[in-house]
Design a protein around this nucleic acid. Structure first.
Lengths: 111, 111
DNA sequence: CTAACGTACAACCATGTGGTTGTAGATCAG
DNA sequence: CTGATCTACAACCACATGGTTGTACGTTAG
């Protein structure tokens, strides 16, 4: 999971993910889109590949890069779980504030 | 957004986020949870703070670390948008395969 | 007041990162 | 076959990262 977020922590790599989500592209076509060397784009793709965000498959002498939506979904689900923790906390605080227990005599800083 | 994903690309930092989502903690309490120096934990908190995933507020001589669920939600929404791109692509492919247009005479590699 | 605590920050080091260039292997066009 | 294309990978560099230790400052306890 470290690798997934690290892979997504770069604008170029997120852009590559977005492009190949729409339609698979060869490495050289991708490289043409950015103002950096072919090798640099190749490295970015390698990072995405190690994080299992994309997969490559040979097609003649080209290498087609496709997205792996499963990994993307796993990352999204993790963040969703974090949000649920937050909502759970908010709910717990709300319950404390509504406080329908026995002793409601003291009002200690309820801001 | 680079900073957000970079901040999440570390197990310790994700754990800190999870802890302070449940309930805010002081830096020293957090530091006690991990087998690394206080300064190291402090740096991790600083990374999370720069990514606006957490905020700090003084409370006496302590510094309470709290989560910022908005930033978390933004990241989650970006990944959701990626998933929608994928679903859109799947839908487009499905439409091409159902192909109820005029010319259905040629079957060019539909795998 | 002094001592202990919580924090901040600088300096340092090993390692990883993003970028470059260069070289070499497959594959397609002619 | 030869030459052009697509890819892979190594070497290198500047810089950021994650970790350490040490020092300094504000705050609380006694």
């Amino acid at each position: 999971m470290d690798k997934v977020f690290h892979a997504l922590a770069d604008k170029t790599r997120r852009d590559i993910v977005q492009r190949v989500l729409v339609s698979p592209q060869s490495v050289s076509v991708l490289a043409g889109e950015y103002s950096m060397s072919f090798a640099a784009v190749q490295k970015h793709v390698a990072v995405l590949e190690r994080a299992r965000l994309v997969t490559k498959q040979k097609r003649g002498r080209e290498q087609l890069v496709s997205a792996d939506p499963d990994t993307l979904r796993h990352a999204s689900q993790l963040l969703d779980r974090y949000e649920q923790l937050w909502r759970h906390r908010v709910r717990a605080i709300a319950e404390i504030l509504s406080e329908d227990t026995d002793n409601i005599e003291d009002n200690k800083e309820q801001s």
